[in-house]
Amino acid sequence: MSKTNILYQHGTLALLVPGLLDGTITMKELLEHGDTGIGTGEGLNGELIILDGVPYQVDSNGNVNVVKDDFTLPFANSHFDEYRHLTDIDGLSPKEIEKKILSMTSSNTFFSTKIHGTFTNIKTRAVKKSEKPYATLSKTAEDQSIFLEESIEGTLLSYYSPQIFDGAAVGGFHHHFLADNHKFGGHVLGFGGASGEIKVQQFDTLEQHLPTKNTDYMNYDFSKCDILGDIHKAEG
């Protein structure tokens, strides 16, 4: 029986900051912990969004690919879908949506939201895969492609983390998008307005999995990193 109250997280955003970008979990392993999720591939190879158990990768060319079981990731979230209806929206901006969601939930626990509907002037990005020796997160993220659609139907999949977990994850909301036509998606940089249904799923448990078999991670001294500064710069 799936445990729908658990958010599974492999790796941390903090480990990406100095460039620890090895893939340390396979997609097959990740899907054992959920049928819904987000992440990035080894070397920041594109942006991942998992819906209904299908893992889609938006690559730096804008292609949407279904990845295989042996695709590896340095960082990912996943959970088993048990969303419930929260509210309907009409033409709300990202800030308005986040404010509305938080007024109807709590900022002190992890949750996921899924918005299906129409999005206007939506801007996404995907990072080009880098190879070893990896650069830092902020440097690698500079080699990104930006995509824009004036109006498109699709799913905005988001995870919310309490501010006290900033660094392990993104404190606040982290949004990925996939168009219904599977021709557009990525990490969301912004949009004009969204109209559709908001669904929410709250978690009371965070299962944090660390890549303890990765020597580079185990031996790294994080005290010399500006973890939060670099995360906010790269994830903004």
Rank of each mutant, 00 (worst) to 15 (best):
D216S: 07
F203C: 05
T155M: 12
Y220M: 01
Y159T: 14
L30R: 11
S223N: 13
T12K: 10
Y220F: 08
G11V: 03
I231E: 01
N108K: 15
G117M: 11
T12L: 04
H10R: 12
G34N: 10
L137I: 10
V67S: 02
D204P: 02
S223G: 05
G37F: 00
E82N: 10
T155Q: 07
D90P: 05
S103D: 14
I152V: 15
T36D: 06
K68L: 07
P162T: 12
M1C: 07
S112R: 05
F147E: 11
V170K: 15
Q208L: 15
G41Q: 06
H209A: 06
K233S: 13
S145A: 12
N45P: 00
A168I: 15
H79P: 01
T109N: 13
F173D: 10
S145N: 11
G39H: 09
T109P: 00
E98N: 14
L86D: 14
R125C: 13
H182P: 02
S103V: 06
Y8Q: 05
L44Q: 11
H209R: 15
F147P: 12
A14L: 01
T118G: 00
D90F: 14
T105R: 09
A194W: 00
D70M: 13
G185Q: 07
K100D: 14
L16K: 12
N181C: 04
K129V: 01
T140D: 07
Q57M: 12
F111R: 02
G62V: 01
L48Y: 14
Q57F: 04
S106F: 03
S106L: 06
L206T: 00
T118R: 02
I198R: 10
K224T: 15
I227E: 00
Q9M: 10
S145H: 02
K199E: 12
M218W: 13
K68D: 14
H187A: 03
F110C: 03
A14E: 14
Q163M: 13
L15D: 08
T109V: 07
L20Y: 11
G34V: 00
D35Y: 03
P18H: 01
N61S: 11
P55L: 06
V188Y: 03
T215D: 13
G154S: 12
F119W: 06
M104D: 09
T120M: 04
T105D: 09
